[in-house]
């Protein structure tokens, strides 16, 4: 027990939680935005990989870090547009299209990476985002490094939670977005084109996903390798269900998962005699449990995965 207490008492753990959560927050908000307008985007895993590569490559070739984030967002939006064209006006299967985009975007990212960086024994690195010192409070004991000593994209992600929640619940645009995912016929009858709204929302959501990927190369690992997303995209898809499609709860879910992850990493190093794979499994198992509990109460957008065609019911 004292081992567990030691881990929980260490500032390093809590510092890591927000860091690990950041790409998940970006990704979860992206999925949430797509699904709120009624489109499942399983392209996320590939879009995150692509975003990670584009962000890294931009900075590696001399761009600054924010240019890298912006380039990643643009790349993500481009894949979002592809997904949107296939699923919205053409009404193709959202599962198949999404998985196809994941396969394509991941492979394409690696291909471009190999073209740009032909041979390397150890992957080349870039100078990453540095931890900030917000309000000069980073030196406070415990809360300082945890809350005020993170990198800039983490604060951007947190701000986006607030922005997205505001947009969805407080603005006419948000109401239209929700209506597009609940009953696009009703939206059309009120004179707003659901097709266009869905396309834009998917592009924006995909841009967020790609920024989550870019965080990995520009703030966490400093270099790109093709398997680095490691299922984070799929976790985001599950977290959105866990969050019942609400931005605030999505943040909570991302933090919860990140906590489990950070905790098991530390547990691995201090507990002997237990295969480390069991610890690796733990956050996923706990996520599944949380999902089962929460998903029962989730209110699914009624038109999720239903293509909209005018005049057809």
């Amino acid at each position: 027990m004292s081992v567990i207490f030691d881990i929980l008492a260490a500032v390093g753990l809590w510092e890591a939680v927000l860091r690990i959560a950041t790409p998940l927050i970006f990704g979860t908000l992206g999925v949430l935005l797509c699904e709120r307008v009624g489109v499942l985007n399983l392209g996320i895993e590939g879009i995150m990989t692509f975003g990670a590569m584009v962000g890294w490559l931009t900075v590696y070739s001399g761009g600054d870090l924010w240019t890298g984030m912006a380039a990643a967002a643009l790349g993500g939006a481009a894949f979002g547009l592809l997904h949107a064209i296939l699923t919205v006006p053409l009404g193709l299967s959202q599962h198949v299209t999404g998985l196809g985009i994941t396969l394509f975007a991941s492979s394409f990212a690696y291909y471009v990476f190999r073209l740009a960086v032909p041979v390397a024994t150890s992957p080349p690195t870039v100078e990453p985002f540095r931890p900030l010192d917000v309000f000069g409070l980073a030196d406070l004991p415990v809360v300082g490094p945890v809350l005020f000593g993170q990198t800039a994209p983490t604060y951007l992600a947190l701000a986006l939670v607030v922005v997205l929640a505001w947009v969805i619940y407080r603005t006419p645009l948000g109401l239209a977005l929700r209506m597009a995912g609940e009953n696009p016929h009703a939206l059309d009858a009120q004179g707003v084109d659901p097709i266009r709204l869905r396309i834009w929302a998917i592009m924006a959501g995909s841009a967020l996903m790609a920024m989550g990927g870019a965080f990995l190369t520009l703030a966490a690992f400093n270099s790109f390798f093709p398997t680095m997303v490691q299922g984070r995209g799929w976790i985001c898809v599950a977290l959105v269900v866990f969050a019942s499609w609400r931005p605030g709860r999505a943040l909570l879910g991302a933090l919860l998962f990140a906590f489990f992850d950070a905790f098991q990493l530390r547990l691995q190093t201090v507990v002997d005699g237990v295969p480390y794979q069991l610890f690796l499994m733990a956050p996923y198992l706990l996520s599944i449990l949380a999902l089962i509990v929460m998903a029962r109460r989730a209110r699914v957008p009624q038109a999720l995965m239903q293509p909209y065609r005018r005049g057809e019911r």
Binding site: R170, T171, P172, L173, G174, L175, A176, R178, M179, E182, N183, H185, A186, L187, A189, Q190, G191, V192, R299, P301, Q302
Partner: peptide, 25 residues
């Protein structure tokens, strides 16, 4: 009926009646 069951009566009625880019409904 062109209604969204998950939304409130007011939400259903107000949808699309305001300029989309207004910052607050």
């Amino acid at each position: 009926f062109a209604l969204a069951p998950n939304l409130s009566v007011l939400d259903n009625i107000v949808t699309g009646t305001e300029p989309l880019w207004r910052p607050v409904s």
